[in-house]
Design a protein around this nucleic acid. Structure first.
Length: 337
DNA sequence: AATAGCGACAACCGCCTCCAT
DNA sequence: CATGGAGGCGGTTGTCGCTAT
C-alpha cells in the first residue's frame, strides 16, 4: 500500500509553468513566505500541486539563484565532490552558492559525465576506465576461485561498518580510551594472503583529486595488501596532483580524521546507505576542505555574504573542531586504520 | 524547407526521512 | 511508540530549441 498522492493529479495543472503562474507564485512567496507548501497553490490562486510549486520556487524563482552557465571552478568542485560523496546532489549544490541540486544534477548528466568519459575517466568511480576494466577482470577472476559464500565486498562492508560503529561510539562517548582502540588491529583487517585484500584497497580508495593533467596518467599498480593505511594511500597515489598534495596536506588529514571508512566505501561503490554512520560529519569535513581549496583559487564570490551560508559554514567549522578534539590521534598521519 | 537527432533544461515520480500528533 | 503528512532527494522523463542532413 503506497501513500495517497499529495494532491488530486487529475485536477491539477502539470507541465511547464507560464509567466503568469510564475508571477503569482513569486508574488505570494515574496509576501507570505513559503510556509506549508500544500497550502501555497490554494492561497496563491494556482491550480498546481504544492510539490510542484515548491520545486518551481527552489529550482527557478528563488531570487538568489544564478542562471548563467557553470564556471570551470564550479565544474571542478562538482567533480571533486562527486568523487568524494557520489551523486548527493543536494549536498554538492550546497557548496555552490546560487545553484540547485537540479542544476548540478543536470549539468553533471549532460556535460560533466561526458567530459570525464571523453578523458577516459569512469564517471562513477572517477578512476581511469582501463583500471576499472582491469578491476572488473580481477573481481570476476576472484569470484571463480573463492570458496566463500559471502562476497569479498560484503566482508569489507561489514568490516567498515564495524569500524564505523567504533568511531561513532568514540564520538558519542569521548571518555573512551581512543588510544587503546588504535593499538588494536582493525576488526577485520585482512591477512596479506586474503583473496579479498586487493579488493579492499581498490574499492575503498579514499577520495582522490583528479586534475585534467592527472587524468592521462596510467593507473597505478595495486598497493600492497598487508596493511591498510589511508594516509599512505593518499599521499602516495600518483593520480593525485603533487602540488595539491603539498598545498593541502592539512586537508588530507582533515579528511582522514573525519571521513569514516564506511563513507569512503560508500563513495566508491555507490552502495545503499543502510549502514549507520556518522557520514554527515565526514561529508561536512570534506566539504570544508573543498571549500578551502576553492577559496584558495579566488572563487568564493562572496559566499559569506549570505547569512544562511555563514551559519552553515560555521556549523562545519564547529563540527570539525569537535571531531578534532574527540580524535586527536586520528590527526597523526602515522595512524593505521 | 523539412525533419531527424541531439543536447540542455524543466518538471515529474516515487521513495525516504523527519517531525508533529 | 506508532502513525501520518510534509518536505527533501535522486532518478527519470518530457519539452524545447538548435544543428546537421
Amino acid at each position: 500500500m503506497g501513500r495517497p498522492p499529495c494532491c488530486d493529479k487529475s485536477n491539477v495543472k502539470r507541465g511547464l509553468w507560464t509567466p503568469e503562474e510564475d508571477a503569482k507564485l513569486l508574488a505570494y512567496v515574496s509576501n507570505q513566505g513559503t510556509g506549508n507548501w500544500t497550502l501555497v497553490p490554494k492561497k496563491a490562486g494556482l491550480n498546481r500541486c504544492g510539490k510542484s510549486c515548491r520545486l518551481r520556487w527552489t529550482n527557478y524563482l528563488r531570487p538568489d539563484l544564478k542562471h548563467h552557465s557553470f564556471t570551470p571552478q564550479e565544474e571542478e568542485l562538482i567533480i571533486n565532490l562527486h568523487q568524494a560523496i557520489g551523486s548527493r546532489w543536494s549536498l554538492i549544490a550546497r557548496r555552490l552558492p546560487g545553484r540547485t541540486d537540479n542544476d548540478v544534477k543536470n549539468h553533471w548528466n549532460t556535460k560533466l559525465r561526458k567530459k570525464l568519459m571523453k578523458m577516459g575517466i569512469d564517471p562513477v568511480t572517477h578512476k581511469p576506465v582501463s583500471q576499472v576494466l582491469s578491476d572488473l577482470g580481477t573481481i570476476s577472476c576472484l569470484s571463480t576461485i573463492t570458496t566463500e559464500t559471502q562476497a569479498p565486498n560484503n566482508n569489507l562492508m561489514v568490516s567498515n561498518h564495524q569500524l564505523d560503529q567504533e568511531v561513532q561510539s568514540q564520538f558519542i562517548n569521548p571518555e573512551n580510551n581512543v588510544q587503546s582502540h588504535h593499538n588494536e588491529a582493525p576488526p577485520s583487517c585482512p591477512s596479506p594472503s586474503s583473496s579479498s585484500s586487493s579488493n579492499i584497497t581498490q574499492l575503498s580508495s579514499p577520495p582522490q583529486v583528479i586534475t585534467t593533467a592527472a587524468a592521462a596518467v596510467p593507473p597505478p599498480p595495486p598497493p600492497p595488501c598487508s596493511s591498510f593505511d589511508w594516509s599512505e594511500f593518499l599521499l602516495s597515489d600518483p593520480l593525485m596532483c603533487t602540488e595539491f598534495q603539498q598545498q593541502n596536506q592539512y586537508d588530507v588529514h582533515g579528511i582522514l580524521s573525519s571521513l569514516s571508512p564506511s563513507v569512503m566505501m560508500q563513495n566508491q561503490t555507490q552502495v545503499s546507505n543502510n549502514i549507520a554512520s556518522d557520514e554527515d560529519s565526514g561529508i561536512l569535513a570534506y566539504e570544508e576542505s573543498m571549500e578551502r581549496q576553492v577559496c584558495d583559487t579566488q572563487y568564493c564570490e562572496g559566499t559569506s555574504s549570505s547569512s544562511g551560508d555563514d551559519s552553515f559554514v560555521d556549523a562545519i567549522l564547529n563540527r570539525d573542531s569537535e571531531i578534532r578534539a574527540a580524535f586527536p590521534l586520528l590527526l597523526d598521519g602515522s595512524t593505521d586504520y
